[in-house]
């Protein structure tokens, strides 16, 4: 490998991420009396809980790489992506460095459900920092790419009327409309139908060719194998393995089958 190929785009250095969750009141605390008792006895409120989702992740990602993140449910994959995007703060002591502004596109990226697909496209593009002129140019392309209009004029209907697959396709199409230094994809490819999956995988390859780095979280083994040559396996917030996809997959599979 030549020197020029190894330009780091994302560096994680001992990153710890802690979530605070409000409102998880247990069954024994639903009366005012028990809340009062808690205050008087100075017990730590169980309504605010901390979840240590990622525990000291360190890795370096380079330009042109596509990295798959695998792991069982709740292993911290999505949290790690959010931290790389700078949406969740990293606890002091560690840090995540990234080139440019990484963009996260996930199936649960909340757009406004009461608005039409078309207005959501405008809103999403503006939120990514595009100018209104750029947005105007791109709206038709994005709706075309998402394919939501294949069964009639859905783009003018509110998003709450969409099937989950259609919503995910539209969100993917919005995020993929912009060139990113670092693109983070959270399960987005899993929800579309086969035809859309093919198209979106092509788009991911195009984005990579434009010299970015792609992170992909997915439970579909196939889409990770198809798009990523490197994988990171997270388990309980700790990186268990990091290397070529085939090797990591093998380790992961023996772990899951246990």
């Amino acid at each position: 490998m030549a020197d020029t190929e190894l330009v780091p785009t994302v560096i994680a250095d001992n990153a710890h991420i802690i979530y605070r969750i409000h409102g998880s009141i247990g069954p024994h605390q639903s009366s005012p009396l028990s809340s009062f008792k808690r205050l008087v006895t100075r017990q730590k409120s169980t309504a605010v809980r901390e979840v240590h989702a990622v525990k000291g992740a360190s890795f370096v990602a380079y330009k042109g790489e596509a990295i798959g993140l695998i792991g069982t449910n709740g292993s911290g994959k999505s949290t790690l992506l959010r931290a790389i995007a700078g949406l969740l703060p990293v606890e002091s002591g560690g840090a995540i460095y990234a080139s440019g502004q990484p963009s996260l596109l996930g199936v649960n990226a909340a757009l406004m459900n009461d608005l039409s697909g078309e207005r959501n496209v405008t809103l999403g593009c503006l939120a990514m920092g595009m100018t209104p002129a750029e947005v105007k140019d791109k709206v038709a392309d994005i709706i075309d790419f998402s394919g939501i209009n294949e069964r009639g004029d859905f783009s003018s209907l509110p998003m709450r009327t969409y099937s989950s697959g259609m919503g995910a396709r539209l969100r993917f199409a919005i995020a993929a409309a912009k060139k990113h230094d670092v693109l983070l994809i959270d399960e987005a490819l899993a929800t579309g139908d086969a035809k859309f999956r093919k198209r979106s995988e092509q788009r991911v390859r195009d984005l990579r060719a434009e010299a970015g780095t792609v992170f992909l979280v997915s439970h579909s083994e196939q889409s990770i194998r198809d798009t990523c040559e490197r994988s990171i396996w997270l388990e309980g917030g700790v990186i268990k393995a990091d290397g070529p996809t085939d090797d990591v997959m093998k380790e992961y599979e023996t772990f899951v089958k246990k």
Partner: peptide, 28 residues
């Protein structure tokens, strides 16, 4: 030789590496 140092990730600390390639802290 330098390339392998970067690759095996034992050389410069992550902080120095980030500064060398102009990477910003996420969420600064």
């Amino acid at each position: 030789a330098q390339t392998t140092v970067v690759e095996s990730y034992t050389g410069p600390s992550p902080k120095e590496l980030a500064r060398k390639y102009g990477l910003g802290t996420a969420g600064r």
